[in-house]
């Protein structure tokens, strides 16, 4: 039995049923933006996101039927055709599991490219070609953890990006370099500067 007020995701977990997630993080506000966790709730016009929808008694919910799997697969395909997922192993696993073919949109499908990696402070770098817009960094920077509000959004639609106010370099923002955003980034878009330099092949001395 699921506890009252539990989300579909929580209820499924306690019943041993796996529902895939991407943007969801156990300790952060669920914004239900990735829609990978959608399930079919009989009687609902659309699919519903398991991470936020509350379970109700006698609800008939399908967590893995054809309609659900198609939505997940297509979202994954479109995501992989847009963003560099090379450092996102969980997403690679999901792509394989759902038989996603990102190449179906052609080699000329637009990708989200943001130019060079942003190296503007001594602590971490930002590589937005790898950003999937999961909002975790925005959440930890805001009400979920740090209340710093250094991170927000630029652009709209496909061109949306995580950005500082007026895209100013990080030291000119309210950022306190707490590192929480780096800790929750699932794709390597945010990483520590030493890690970044090491990956560039730079000889890194002991800490």
């Amino acid at each position: 039995m699921a506890s009252p007020g539990a989300t579909i995701l929580e209820a499924a977990r306690s019943a041993g049923i796996t529902i895939p997630t991407v943007c969801y993080h156990d300790h952060l506000t669920a914004n239900a933006v990735c829609r990978i966790c959608v399930v079919e709730w009989m009687g609902s016009r659309t699919l519903v996101p398991a991470c936020v929808a509350k379970i109700q008694p006698n609800a008939r919910i399908y967590t893995d039927n054809e309609r659900v799997r198609t939505a997940r697969r297509v979202i994954l395909e479109m995501l992989a055709a847009t963003v560099d997922l090379s450092e996102a192993p969980e997403l690679q696993t999901l792509l394989a599991e759902y038989g996603a073919d990102p190449h179906r949109f052609g080699s000329d499908a637009a990708r989200r490219e943001h130019g060079p990696v942003k190296v503007d402070n001594p602590f971490y770098v930002r590589d937005y070609d790898k950003c999937i817009l999961c909002w975790r960094c925005v959440q930890v920077c805001a009400e979920d953890v740090q209340f710093t509000f250094a991170l927000g959004f630029n652009g709209r639609g496909f061109e949306t990006s995580i950005a500082t106010f007026f895209d100013r370099p990080m030291p000119e923002t309210t950022c306190v370099f707490c590192g929480n955003c780096v800790g929750v980034c699932p794709t390597g878009a945010l990483k520590g500067k030493r890690e970044y330099l090491a990956a560039q092949g730079a000889p890194i001395g002991p800490r």
């Binding site: 933006v33 990735c34 949109f105 499908a109 817009l133 652009g155 639609g157 496909f158």
Partner: peptide, 18 residues
């Protein structure tokens, strides 16, 4: 729709472009 998608959820943010 590509122009007006707000960019919040993946299906619309990516789907309107594709």
């Amino acid at each position: 729709f590509r122009h007006e998608s707000c960019g919040k959820c993946y299906p619309c943010q990516l789907g309107t472009q594709r």
